[in-house]
Design a protein around this nucleic acid. Sequence first.
RNA 1: GGAGGAUUAGCUCAGCAGGUUAGAGCGCUUGCUUGACAUGCAAGAGGUCACUGGUUCGAGUCCAGCAUUCUCCACCA
Length: 897
Amino acid sequence: MAQEMEKSYNPSGFEDEIYKFWLDGGYFRAEPDPDKKPYTIVMPPPNITGQLHIGHALDETLQDILIRYKRMSGYCALWLPGTDHASIATEAKIVEAMRKEGVTKEDLGREKFLERAWEWKREYGGRITKQLRKLGVSCDWERERFTMDEGCSEAVKEVFVKLYNKGLIYRGNRMVNWCPHCRTSISDAEVEYEEQQGHFWHLLYKVKETGEYLEIATTRPETMLGDTAVAINKDDERYAHLHGCHVILPLLNKELPIVCDEHADMEKGTGVVKITPAHDPNDFEVGLRHSLPIVRCFTYDGHMTGAADVAAYNELAAKGNLAENEPEVLDCGKYAGMDTMQAREAILEDLKAIGALKEVKAHTHDVGTCYRCHTNIEPMVSKQWFVKMKPLAEPAIEAVRQKRTQFIPERFEKVYFHWLENIKDWCISRQLWWGHRIPVYYCDDCGEVIVGKTAPDACPKCGGKRLTPDEDTLDTWFSSALWPFSTLGWPEQTEDFKYFYPTSTLVTGYDIIFFWVVRMIFSALEQTGDVPFDTVFIHGIVRDELGRKMSKSLGNGVDPLEVIEKYGADALRFLLVTGNSPGNDIRYSEKRIEACSGFANKLWNASRFVHMNIDDHDVKNELPQTLTTEDKWILSTLNTVSREVNENLNKFELGIAVQKVYEFIWDCYCDWYIELVKARLQSEGDDAQNARQVLVYVLDRILRLLHPFMPYITERIWQTIPHEGETVMLAEYPTYDEALNFPEAADEMRRIMDAIRAVRNRRSEMNVPPSRKAKIYIATKFTKTFEDGKSFMQKLASASKIEVADSFDIEGAVTVVTADAKLYIPLDELVDKEAELKRLTKELEQVEKRLAQSEGKLNNQGFVSKAPAAVVEGVKAQAQKEREKIALIKAAIEAFK
RNA sequence: GGAGGAUUAGCUCAGCAGGUUAGAGCGCUUGCUUGACAUGCAAGAGGUCACUGGUUCGAGUCCAGCAUUCUCCACCA
């Protein structure tokens, strides 16, 4: 790797090279090491169809910071990467691509389709992981997994069979969310609600027994063909006389019972509800309670059923294959074959013609849509596989209550509990081809259901050889739910599994708590008897400059690869972690990324300065025997920062940690320390050499502290300075060291820095250019400190000459007062006596005001007796300083008069 | 209907085991070709920490309420 540093910071010129250096060195590799503690993160697997977007960048950056930090802190740190087959999303993409070629799934057949899908996976599956590398992610690529690889598939089958044998997986006709576009069922979590403009259509159903008309409001009139009852509330006096009566369903002229059910809300609408058990979740429940027929009038691709559908049903019935709750199928006659929207229009027209449509009212409501294609969900009764959730949810709730897994920030626990406490059974079968096939076979002869990891040779019940495998695949989240342990070799008790499991931290966005986090926790508890991770670290989403979600339709997405190209991965990473607190969203802005890049540039140039001073000398990366005050100050400050950064990182306060590193580098190291030692560096002998060593030593620690956040630039610079070891990645992360704590020296330095700042301030107010040097007289009780600091005052406070004494008797000079000294700057021709007096008086007032505050506290009996001693002492010392300063200012005012 | 977040400088956001004078970046003003960096240096202006109460010796920080706003969940015949 290059040992020189180019004049300007150009990240695109070295980031790829450094990534290759890390890979070649095998530094990302984690092997179980009994002498170390494990720290494990499993990467949330991105979809194989996906392209890297800014959300991934945030997620991966946070993980990489944690894993690099832990690795440098002596842990055996494993970050396990992988990708997700994303059944529904991938299948949709492939079908779409095929559609452009004029080919359908059915044309191709299952086997050929899957071949094509695997091809797709080979082509695109690597794309996203290549893109991830650009970010500098230090995951163990040798352990890369895929949710449909052999091991993960084995785990899926294992879990399915175990849950089935335990009675926690069952098959049945239930109400599910059906996506007519994807032509598959989806789980409750996959339904997204969108506000849509709709109508209430008020229909009139005639009561057979009394001849009166019941007014019934509906938002989906096309479902009326599937009505099998009308419900009223038993306490509703308006309809008490109708108990046991019937209505005549318009258009079909079918007689339907009037039932009493709590679902009918007297407060809502007319209090009468039409019941369509096949196409509404609530109505389905009502149907079950009253043993109503279930009549299906929609096909699974969103059209009205017809004669052919009825024939198919009859065929099934003839075979005796009708299951519990199997919906009857209606021949919708003139409406058959229409899509539901066409049918709605036609039915409304016909209802209107017979006077059964009373009125129409506009109505906005939230409608469930498919989270993938945003087609309106059609609730349908359908035969699917389900996971019984109650028995799995309870231990998952308990584990988090006991803090066996902790949420950061904690508030997301509530979301978690609320979801699990109200959970319904999980529909896991999908009418898709790309995915884990459900490990179930049906005997063609006796109908026996055979569940097993491998295909049986014959039916264990009747010995029949004709067996049909289940056509369906599993919800993609079924396999990702096992990710923390399936990737470590489970169900085998591998070395990896024993060492790295349970994992340590799961990093993810709040948007997939339901999809993923919840399911991992209950699956892990059930399968491994342990929680899958100690901590769930939740982050927000990245929004655009205006605070909007980034989306394709808005075209406001930021391509992380373009940002990396332009500013470097380090700048992007820095942007994503700075000023970010757990669980909160962040905004991307061009201005901010420029500032981040500017910081990298600053570090680059400071390092170049160090090089200018060490390259012709033999400089060791260790502290010299003799340390000056400024050395002790920077070391002491570094020491404090190191301690705090560790504390913050351990509390997942990454934004605060990086802010402290930033401030130390820019404000302490660059703006002060480098300036302070410039003079020494110009001198000859030990003094200069010592300065070089401290300069290098501190830079080395800076690079280590910053490395998890900005891995590339820190490695690039670290390689050019004297160091031990192969890579900064494996250098020890700085921690607090009592031997480097120099409180007295730090105080001395602060006194001088205060004085320098005060002089600069005064000069600036008076518009004196730095080139105009002036003599400074320093009256102080810290004479030694200021004697020692003379050279700093000269250089940084534009002093031509300095004199230090207990006091001076000077008239007509500009006066500057700090807590520790009074400084006179004789700038005779610039001194405006009036202005000086005014300024001093103003300052006096300010300090007196503050003293009054301090004294107020000290005179407050409650404060003195109840506040901690240290706080009281602090205020006392403060008050004393203020008194001294007041005395100094008063003296200065006197001198002017 | 339920839950949660946000509300701090012109803008974007940090801060909060409650404790000297509330911070940063950007923007703004003034002065600097300071031997690493003009992607810079120095100095400065700018804030009753949404509002009302409460707890406390002491409250951006804790509690209650209220307003505005965003998000999630549920429901909607």
